[in-house]
């Protein structure tokens, strides 16, 4: 798979503190890529370098095949965590101005603005001043300014903050639409649920360093602990389990049918043995592998990083 962005051993310091320290990773084209990390890990610094707001002290950033340079600016769209527009300007003027700065010509910019205004049902607002809009409305306008020039690479820093659930969902659908249309999305967030839902791959930054990266499915596989959830009709399973299998928890189904839900830790390669032995005792209603959530992986990795 082609990479749209390659971060190669990038370092950036402020005064004496290293904000980013020898970070390398690749962002595959056409995917949603999660840039994760706790507060102050260096995500914003990294995003600013990708946006060419600041330059790396060391290392290189490549856009496709080329070194990142000014000509790539129109190809990138950026929604910062701290939103802001000119409060005294009219909505349409702000949108057109920011579109022009991204290299869009007047008429084309206007056509696309109309398209988005219609889509987000804010057409009536074009002649209002930004300060007259509600916060949610302003967020929508800012989202439009991020995507209006059809960038190949989109960078969303905590895009859902400040949106109500309805609009957050709308936004999520738009992000997935953009992906479908071929755009690559870099998605920085603390919201691990949304990472599971929309990210294909991630990198986890902590204390200026890259501590975990890969495809979400691979990472989950790597972090699995060999735990399985088993639902059986009878709760009498202990006796039949082969040795080496550990019962981590067992409880009655809360729905009141009386099924038993157990969590088992099963060594690799013993799945078939376990299932066949249990089947001799009782019926199995469901059996599935428990994969760790991104939330758990995040906490676990960051914590273990701290202990080191």
């Amino acid at each position: 798979m082609k990479n749209i962005l390659q971060i190669d051993n990038v370092t950036k310091s402020y005064a004496k503190k290293k904000a980013i320290d020898g970070v390398s990773f690749c962002v595959p084209e056409g995917e949603v890529f999660g840039l994760l990390g706790p507060n102050g890990a260096g995500k914003t610094t990294l995003i600013r370098m990708i946006n060419q707001i600041t330059m790396p002290d060391e290392g290189m950033i490549y856009f496709g095949e080329d070194k990142l340079s000014e000509k790539h600016i129109p190809l990138v769209g950026y929604l910062p965590e701290e939103r802001g527009l000119y409060k005294k300007m009219k909505v349409s003027e702000v949108v057109l101005y920011l579109a022009e700065l991204k290299g869009l010509k007047g008429l084309e910019a206007k056509r696309r603005m109309d398209f988005w205004f219609e889509k987000f049902e804010i057409k009536d607002w074009w002649n209002k001043k930004v300060e007259e809009l509600s916060k949610g409305m302003q967020q929508k306008v800012q989202f439009i300014t991020t995507v209006i020039h059809k960038p190949k690479l989109l960078i969303f820093d905590e895009p859902f903050s400040g949106f109500d659930p309805l609009n957050a969902n709308l936004l999520k659908q738009e992000i997935l639409n953009l992906k479908r249309e071929g755009a690559t999305v870099i998605f920085s967030t603390h919201n691990m649920e949304s990472v599971e839902e929309i990210c294909d791959a991630i990198v986890l930054i902590n204390s200026a360093k890259n501590i975990l990266q890969g495809r979400v499915s691979d990472i989950k596989q790597n972090f699995k602990k060999g735990e399985y959830e088993l639902i059986t009709v009878s709760s009498q399973i202990e006796k039949v389990l082969p040795s080496g299998v550990e019962i981590i928890s067992k409880k009655e189904d809360e729905n009141g049918i009386g099924n038993c839900i157990s969590v088992l830790k099963i060594p690799e390669g013993m799945n078939a043995d376990v299932l066949s032995s249990i089947l001799k005792q009782t019926d199995i209603i469901s059996y599935r592998e428990i994969l760790p959530s991104m939330n758990e992986i995040f906490i676990q990795t960051v914590k273990s990083g701290k202990q080191q």
């Binding site: 600013r48 707001i53 600016i73 990138v76 910062p80 000119y86 920011l98 700065l101 991020t146």
Partner: peptide, 17 residues
Amino acid sequence: EEKTSRIVEVLTSSVKS
């Protein structure tokens, strides 16, 4: 004003500061 309204972050991603 541009700094406190935070629009500067978007602006600097489009043009040299």
